[in-house]
Simulated scan of single mutants.
Amino acid sequence: MTNSTLAAFRSADQRPTQLRTLTYHGLAPGPRLLVLGAVHGNEVCGARAIAQLIAELDSGALAIERGTLTLVPVTNPLAYQLGQRTGERNLNRNMAPSAIPQDFEDRIANVLCPLLDAHDALLDLHSFHTGGAPFVMIGPQDNRGTLEPFARAAEEMQLALHTGPHRIVEGWLETYALGVQRRAAAPTPNADRDDQILMTNPNYGVGTTEYMRSRGGYGVTLECGQHDAPEAVQVARHAILQTLALLGLNSRPLAPVPMDREILRLVDVTDRQHAGDRFSRDWNSFDAVKGGELIGVRQGGEPVTAPADGFVVFPNPHGEVGQEWFYFAQQRA
């Protein structure tokens, strides 16, 4: 799929009725890898990198020698067509099959979940709206808990290390669950009722990688850079090629892993309570803060400060009321 094809698809008037996937089978057995682009419709670097890869595979410049590679250039075609993050809701939340689908994303999930079930590993390509360096998100350590039991942390870490960014972030679902508990205990008065119901559902924190882990696989979310940064496409492309090499789907050499890697853990989340809540300055993900430093101000004038030394993550100055405003991370102990 060329960039002109992507542009034509994006400008189409009719509502999407299909999900385009491409699968390449090596003639020798091996792992099954799924690569997703544009789970959020305004995060297009993955779609563009996948389009480049498809052209190389179809021309013979690149080959799948063993195992299976499935590519989904545009995972949420409605959001992509609209040029925005979501179609009718966030596809990367509440990921599960639906017996009675209620919206467009439910119908996509009914196709996407069986794809996830059929693969061993997942590389999900994203980007972010504020500035900052690329990073990769992983799941929990091996555990037998009830929230996110897991037994493939070592494989997932190897995948994360070879995607390219030096910064690795963990703790998503645990921190999201903490936010759910708070919202359930003290609902935001100004939040949309339907959004509030979803945001107080613990399963709403489950996206592509969380679902993949729940089905016995493993996967990472690669945040390739700012939405419009041209280098984000190259970050996505590098990660795909390195993942193919790591899993042995082709014989490309592996690049060295970053030696200066940094592992951060999400430990807290702060919601936006009112449309008048504002940040004290323009924050980028992973800007460092000192304990007590001012991060934002509530509409009524109450300060929102850093609970300890750490980092602001996923700051969203235009976040919906009752939803995440920013996360807080610290160095892994």
Rank of each mutant, 00 (worst) to 15 (best):
L125T: 08
A12D: 08
A186R: 15
N110Q: 10
E88I: 03
E148W: 14
H119G: 02
P317A: 13
T130E: 14
H166R: 15
L198T: 06
L222G: 04
D142R: 09
V35T: 03
V297Y: 15
V111S: 02
T175E: 09
L294E: 10
R215I: 01
A185Q: 11
I100N: 13
M259L: 15
D13K: 15
I64W: 02
Q242S: 10
G26N: 05
V180W: 01
E262N: 01
G41N: 04
F314L: 14
W172T: 03
P303K: 15
T188P: 07
M95H: 03
G216N: 02
R252N: 13
Y176V: 09
I54Q: 14
G26Y: 08
V321K: 06
I295N: 04
D309Q: 14
L241A: 08
T208D: 07
V44N: 05
L244F: 03
R15E: 14
E170T: 09
V312W: 04
Y218H: 14
V304A: 12
A55W: 02
D124A: 01
A275R: 08
D277W: 00
Q226F: 00
N284E: 13
H227Y: 11
L247T: 04
A191L: 09
S127M: 03
M1T: 02
V44I: 13
Q273T: 10
H238A: 10
R298P: 06
Q330M: 07
P140R: 07
V321Q: 05
F128T: 04
M212Y: 05
A185R: 09
C224V: 01
L82N: 08
R278I: 12
T86G: 06
D192Q: 14
E231K: 09
Y211K: 08
Q273P: 08
T270K: 00
H227K: 12
G205M: 04
V74K: 05
A245H: 04
N250L: 02
N203M: 12
Q330V: 15
G322H: 05
Q102V: 00
L246P: 00
A8F: 09
Y218N: 00
E65I: 10
I108R: 06
P16T: 05
V39E: 04
G276P: 06
P317Y: 01
A184D: 09
H227V: 09
L27I: 12
L159T: 06
A255H: 06
L249F: 01
E56A: 12
V169W: 12
P253K: 00
Q226I: 02
L161S: 04
R237L: 00
R48N: 06
A306W: 13
A245G: 07
A239H: 05
V39T: 05
R32K: 15
L249Y: 04
L222S: 01
L34D: 03
T209I: 15
T221H: 09
T270F: 01
N92A: 05
G132K: 04
T209F: 08
T209W: 08
